[in-house]
Amino acid sequence: MSGLNEKELAQQAMNGDIAAFEELITAERSRLYSFALGMAGGNHADASDVLQEAFVKAFVNIKRFRGDSSFGTWLWRIVRNEFINYRKALGTKAIQHDDEEVAGLAETGGTTAVEELILAERREKLLEIIALLPPKYRETLVMIDIREESYEKTAELLDLSMSALKTRAMRAREKLSELIRKRRSHFL
C-alpha cells in the first residue's frame, strides 16, 4: 500500500498509474466480485469477465470521476451498468454454471451428504431463476435479500431514492414469487 488517500490515488491513476488504480479497486474488489457472482447466477467465468471489463472501463474513464461520491460508489455503478450491457449482449441465453461452482458458493453445516447434494441442486435452481429476472430487479434482490446490504447503502450504490428502492425490491420479490410458483416442484 502506498499510504496515499483516495483522491491522490485517483489523481495518479488519471495519469496512467496502473499500480495506483489497482490500489483503488482493492477495497471493493471482493465485495464487487460477490455482487457479480449473484448477478451472473453463480457463474464464475461470467462474473470474472464482467468485473474485469468494468474495471478496464473504470480505468479508461477515470477522468470522469469527479469525487462527488466515493470511488467505491462510482465503481459499483460501473459494474452495475456493465451487467446491464452484458445481459443485453447475452440476450435470453441461460446462464451456464457447473455443479461444483454452485455447491461452493455457500457454506453448509451439519448436513448429510445427501442433504448437501439436494441443497446444492436447489441453490443451482434458485440461481437460475434469479438469473431470469431483469437486471434492475436482480441487482435489488442480490443487494438486499442475498447480500443483506442496508436499504440506505443499496439506495446509494444503485443511485435510487429510498422509496424507489423499496418499490423495486417489492417488485423483484413478486417477480421471484411468480417464477417460484411455476417451478415450485424444484424446492419441495
Binding site: 457472482l37 447480500r147 417460484i180
Partner: peptide
C-alpha cells in the same frame, strides 16, 4: 400451499446464497 412452501425454502436459501465477499479467480 406448495407455492408457499417453496417460497419458504427459497427465503431460507437466499441469505448468503453468494458469500458477502468472494475472492476473484
Amino acid at each position: 400451499r406448495e407455492h408457499l412452501a417453496a417460497a419458504g425454502a427459497v427465503t431460507g436459501m437466499l441469505k448468503g446464497l453468494v458469500p458477502a465477499e468472494a475472492d476473484t479467480p
